[in-house]
Design a protein around this nucleic acid. Sequence first.
DNA 1: AATAATATTTAGAATAATTCCAATTATTGC
DNA 2: GCAATAATTGGAATTATTCTAAATATTATT
Lengths: 143, 143
Amino acid sequence: MQLEPQYKELLDTALEGSGQRATKQREHVYALLLQKRDHPTADEIYARARSEMPTISLATVYNCLETLVETKLIRQVNFEREPTRYCPNLTQHAHFYCRESGEIVDIELSDQLIGELMKVLPKGFSAQHIDIAYDGKCNHCHD
Amino acid sequence: MQLEPQYKELLDTALEGSGQRATKQREHVYALLLQKRDHPTADEIYARARSEMPTISLATVYNCLETLVETKLIRQVNFEREPTRYCPNLTQHAHFYCRESGEIVDIELSDQLIGELMKVLPKGFSAQHIDIAYDGKCNHCHD
DNA sequence: AATAATATTTAGAATAATTCCAATTATTGC
DNA sequence: GCAATAATTGGAATTATTCTAAATATTATT
């Protein structure tokens, strides 16, 4: 599996910018996330990573994910107390969790809607991030 | 500490409705949540509970909280992978987490705003719940 | 290209929140 | 008050994640 040149570029710049090194493992984990955008957990990424890189360890997967989150190339996604999931979609979006299929779908959010959510904050409060998680039934699981 | 009669009533009805029993422990945990609405964790509730009920166990605290959540008398509140917190505010609201003080504040949400959030869902999706978590700086921690 | 300095990976141990378990105790319906 | 059932308890088990220290890889320097 290959990391597309534009993403390779993005990764290298982000790592360099934070004084970190480009390694095979980081590249591979990032490529996996870009390739199958189904919000996998660390364990799932570990399983996927091993087919091409059998010696990678789970700790390394966690380390790589941490680095990618810190450099803002990916986002963490949490639902209740379930294992953290990872997402390379950097646009402003919420997540929809289907209780039936377990599928997680990105929901794009307009600046306008985010603006309205910011407006309801009491005076003196400022938010740097809003995390929005829907849960219900997705289109595939409809009656 | 006393559970106010209207809440005692609410609790008894909710428990009876789901075929569960009213116990001292359940009442006490519920009373603690109503009395100090600072979104405590199970551990914090355990510590508070013990001063008046020294023999209560942590497992029981977890059990009581589970029952209260199931009967919809309280809500769980999660931030990232931090320990789950509990909240007896049943109105439609989001949570604001202050990175500086750690304080968690309820943010009331209008039906209108919730409606708009529902409207951005793609066709075929239906949500039964939206979880909204802000994080940033609260009024006390302002510059 | 070899070497030194530094960062990363690795495997396994440690941690922390939560759940499970089996025995005891409390509550409810008769 | 007694039997039936549900809840509580303490401790063990589980699970996601982090930590640790040794081995390996990368980068900078000669």
